[in-house]
Amino acid sequence: ARLPRSAVLKKILDSVKDLVKETNWDCNEEGMSMQALDTGRIVLVEVMLREAAFESYACEVPMTLGIDMEPFGKVLRCAGGDEKVTIKASRNDQDHIELVFENEEKERMSAFELKLMDIDGEHMAVPDAEWGAEISMPSSEFKKIVMDLAEIGSDLTIAVSKLGVTFTAQGNNCKGSMVLQPSTAVDKKSEQVAISFTEPLEMTFAAPYMKMITKAAALSSTVTLSLDEACPICVRYEMEDNAGHIKYYLAPKED
């Protein structure tokens, strides 16, 4: 599997490493995907890197690669963001993978081996849900709202109504809320705020977890929040050019 830029892998690692220390990557002809629970079992994260994400991709037999994020991160730090990455896994030797970074301008090539792990990962079936509310907005804006409000309090409430979407945090000494309304005057789709809902709803989530989830803003200019009463929120980042996505399901806080 050859990626045109290592930056994609670096960003994916950054988006999951606070939640997941080791995970199985499933490789098949469609691409590479992973699903993992965080150690607190509060978040389920799913990453899909489709074949379209790669400059070249071949997977003759489906394989599962058990990857320890810490050494994977050390190896990836050796790659320049604009260097090509080739990941090689051999069906004859499933003990390790090889990673090759190529810098075409400087005619430099570096090669690494990463030992694979035998990970006994749980796998969850996530049914297609009928969401009560969906909000799409610039991922940078969502990140700023969450980062700011997480400083105010550890509970982040998201309310959707005719007023728009309201994010509220309450701490011991202060309370803050931010309201976003659907944008009408913005041409660029990536800068638009779109809100749809069937009934008004209000859900509360742990702000520190939501903060970790906003790290994936580096992967996509937009984010979609899908909510339903008494259900986990789904925070979805779609990568450009059908390259794949990262989805987080975060369990609510309730009485």
Binding site: R41, M124, A125, Y249, K253
Partner: peptide, 14 residues
């Protein structure tokens, strides 16, 4: 205070 739910009960383990 609100209680943090676990994610697992919302989905079906495979």
């Amino acid at each position: 205070a609100l209680m943090q739910r676990e994610i697992v009960p919302y989905f079906e383990a495979l």
